[in-house]
Amino acid sequence: MTRLLPYPLLALSLLVMWLLLNGISAGHVVLGVIVALAASRLMAALQPEKPSLKRWSRIPRLVLLVMADIARSNIAVAHIILRGGHGKGVAGFVVIPLELRDRTALAILACIISSTPGTAWVEYHPGSGRLRIHVLDLVEEQYWIDQIKRRYESLLLEIFE
């Protein structure tokens, strides 16, 4: 099983991508399975680090939470822009001490923070675990530290560690 299918998630997403691009028919399912198996075997040659998912059941909750937050901050940032460039606070940097160490989890956190309008991931020090983000509407630093840590980091810690 592991020799034939080293990366089951990758193979599955390749198959789904193939079917979305070509339309679902018996022939394309066969072709897609062949492509997915071959590509995931090739991927094994690169020996990427395998992420360890502990709790799958939390993933839908994270996705919904992120989508709702992105919608909310879209509206907030649109307000700021239409009012002439400043909200209640000023724009500034915030340093957040993170407990998260898993690389995949950090990558997901980076995607969440960067794609949410109003916050941008600037830099991260793996040694100290400190993350610097830029916030467009900064009223209170502690609010953003709590926001990131409580909303996303705790969920990601549950999923990955």
Partner: peptide, 16 residues
């Protein structure tokens, strides 16, 4: 006004 503020602007277009 500044570059770091402008980084937030295109994310509106790339998300919703």
């Amino acid at each position: 006004k500044s570059f770091y503020q402008r980084v937030h602007a295109p994310t509106l277009g790339t998300t919703w």
